[in-house]
Design a protein around this nucleic acid. Sequence first.
RNA 1: GCCGACGUAGCUCAGGGGUAGAGCGUUUCCUUGGUAAGGAAAAGGUCACGAGUUCAAUUCUCGUCGUUGGCUCCA
Length: 648
Amino acid sequence: MINITLPDGSVKQFDKGSTPMNIAFSISAGLARNVISAKFNDNVVETITPLEEDGNLVLLTFKDDDGKQAFWHSTAHLLAQAITKLYPGVNLTIGPSIEKGFYYDVDPNGQAISENDFPEIEKKMLELARGKHDFQMHPVSKTEALEYYKTKNNPYKVELIENLTDGEITFCDHDDFTDLCRGGHIPNTGFIKAVKLMNIAGAYWRGDENNAQLTRIYGISFPKQKELKEYLELLEEAKKRDHRKLGKEMKLFAFSQKVGLGLPLWLPKGAALRDRLEKFLKDAQENAGYQPVVSPHIGQKELYMTSGHFQKYGEDSFQSIKTPQDGEEYLLKPMNCPHHCEIYNAQTWSYRDLPQRYAEFGTVYRYEQSGELHGLTRVRGFTQDDAHIFCTPAQLDEEFKKVIDLVLYVFGSLGFENFTAQVSLRDTENPSKYIGSDENWEKAESAILNAAEEKGLTYKIVKGEAAFYGPKLDFMVKDALGRQWQLGTIQVDYNLPERFELEYKGSDNEMHRPVMIHRAPFGSLERFIAILIEHTGGNFPLWLMPEQATILSISEKYENYSKKVLSLLKKHEIRATFDNRGETMGKKIREAEMNKTPYMLIVGESEVENETVSVRKHGGEDLGQMSITSFAEIINAQIDKEIYKFEV
RNA sequence: GCCGACGUAGCUCAGGGGUAGAGCGUUUCCUUGGUAAGGAAAAGGUCACGAGUUCAAUUCUCGUCGUUGGCUCCA
């Protein structure tokens, strides 16, 4: 007998070799019908895996994340089977589950698979699924496994197997299909009732652009048709929040082919929104002891040779700017830090002067790959809310923590609660990607980890994601479609101070090297605003809204009074417009609703008589008639609630 | 940069080898209206650009540019 501990803490005895499915049955038949996977001692196992020892068992259904993963991974097998049947000769590679669904990478071996083929593949998959074929794992020896795929002429699987150790290699069979697989399946294909192939894309084998390009098919599946329908509807809703669509509709920004790829143009409403965000952060930074600085948009090539940026990125960047004089080379500024280092170097410093915190909304230009450009989230010209803190090594921890506070304040004020903190460290196996000594890197990395710990951040560590000069703490936020973007970033840097020979005089009367913190709470204004648009669906906090109120006159007769209201609102610093067109009230309200205007002020005979406005909120709530002053109070109270001061 | 899809009016999109359509928006006229579309008329397009096939190309083919979904990259 073995003792199985269930999630509720209860311990039950079962025969040795009982499977999770046996155990599910012993609890209830209903549960057993829905169990698709299981976790034994934190490892995902099959529902038919015999359990041989005591342990904790979690039975998983499609509602559990791990259950979904098993479900989707199993569907990937099904996709592979369908493709193999429809396109004999394709070479299968890998087919994992992902956050939302699964994909399979195949080498089509010269055959063309396109989106047009999806319906046929989906049909085949469902047809195969209906056979209720069991997924069955069995171990194979390395020799056997290699033999199997060599016969099939599949170099990809052979490569995968060669990197595995004998004894840990398993195949998974279902129906007449066999695939190399480490496990995590649902009991049988019959659970898969709804399948949708989402898109097709090129992907490099093993993610290396020097390797062959494979065809990747993305898909998603569900136990019920209804769930698929709901998922697709959710996707449609998300698309409505796309910042590229809303940015155009709300006249915030535009792109022009004539101006150039990835070079955003800010229209008046968007520029004003940006301005408000800048002012918001400038106020907070002033309270936090930052000093504004300004540096030019270009700098001598030599500057970026000193920093190392040119050696690292020069080839793939905008090329140098020609001058009438021979031998002069200037570059568009890709980073503000070299300039700020020279600002620090403009005078001599004592340890008593540190930290120096230099802040600049600096516009930088980077030649991003054309395929990578994406609305405002990935552009070639953008403005960083950049600052560099020059401090003594002893001040580093404190300064770093203060920056975390500032970033959290910014995110909190703008409603970004669902961020991921990511500590990006260097890839120690690839030292040529980085500059500076091991000692400096270790100091910088431990400073970040300590600060993140002390601030109680939940963070994940990613090796190999550091900047070339130092490790980072990044704050990542997802867009409407679930794609993750880096917004805020804080970086510790011992290396640029060395390269720029930055110094201060210590209490010991000797010269010392300061440490630098690079930081940007927004990251870039462009990307931040893009994500803000997607999170709010264009319904920004009132203090950011381009248009806070609009006056809708019931007829043109009330033009004079409406204009008076408009000027009163202006006196109260409320951004308002006046719609005096000869349209019906229904139409004006509809348009204001579509426009996302937070407050509609209706003006007719009664309002003129009483010197009031009738207030309708976006969404339909009727606040009734009130004086302009009362309305202004409501607006200001709401703004005060939304935006608060950053205190150090 | 790589693989795939797409590019028709200001916007959203339909169409299709014989030089174009809808809705919304715009303009004008009628209507002067009380909480999500009042009515009518008009203007508006080298069908992204270039080449090829064809009697004829916006439609088919190729190329370029752009957009887009991924991959790679991201100081």
